[in-house]
Design a protein around this nucleic acid. Structure first.
Lengths: 108, 108
DNA sequence: TATTATTATCGTAATATTGCAATATTATAA
DNA sequence: TTATAATATTGCAATATTACGATAATAATA
């Protein structure tokens, strides 16, 4: 039947997977990278930066935004937003917590 | 027409996306978590731990293995493997490098 | 060698993701 | 209010992912 069987995994596992999904496409990585490196808000010049169409960028941006990674105003003709650095760091910390959750052992 | 337009993104962006893809499914997170927390090698008791069928686990394990995250022997009736901690840490470091690659600025 | 236990592969179905053209929406400017 | 510029949504097509039953392959054991 396909498509993820979510119920059998715990919350932390789903959280990590959700975070990872945001980063799981090079276009979103590129968008995040671009946003993170702007000194000012982005007010409508992303489409020219990444080599994808406006609807496609819009979709990727929504994924990023729904993940809470954007901060700013999202109404009307001109968006004005930047990286939500607190959330960005939270992502990093949650991932690091996952990576640190290991019992160090020697085998193989 | 769909399906990623890889060529327009740079290598680092693709690398991050590839790493993230491995973590982008809760089953793989669960498998990695389980493997990481074993004191000894895994010799064939994963299927009972995660609530998925043997072929499905086998597929997820291959994704993890192809990412270089496993260490051990992979032949015959009994696999015997554990987490490749060096590679695991490399993943963590590459992700952290991405997260740190930002210009801190105040806006919005 | 034949049996058994374990993992891999194949085939197939369902769902998800990606991408863009066309169109709609929305806030600003004229 | 009417144009405009910018972003969002819709609809569709192509590809990717996920899942599992059936089967194959493989190594150890009898």
């Amino acid at each position: 039947m396909g498509a993820s069987k979510l119920s059998i995994h715990n919350e932390q596992q789903q959280l990590i997977a959700e975070i990872a999904k945001v980063l799981a496409h090079p276009a979103r990585v590129a968008i995040l990278e671009y946003i993170a490196n702007q000194k000012n808000c982005i007010c409508g010049d992303i489409v020219d930066e990444i080599g994808l169409s406006q609807p496609t960028i819009s979709q990727h941006l929504q994924v990023i935004r729904k993940a809470g990674l954007l901060k700013g105003t999202f109404e009307g003709k001109r968006l004005c937003y930047c990286l939500n650095r607190e959330r960005f760091e939270e992502f990093q910390e949650l991932l690091n917590a996952f990576f640190h959750q290991t019992v160090v052992a020697d085998c193989c």
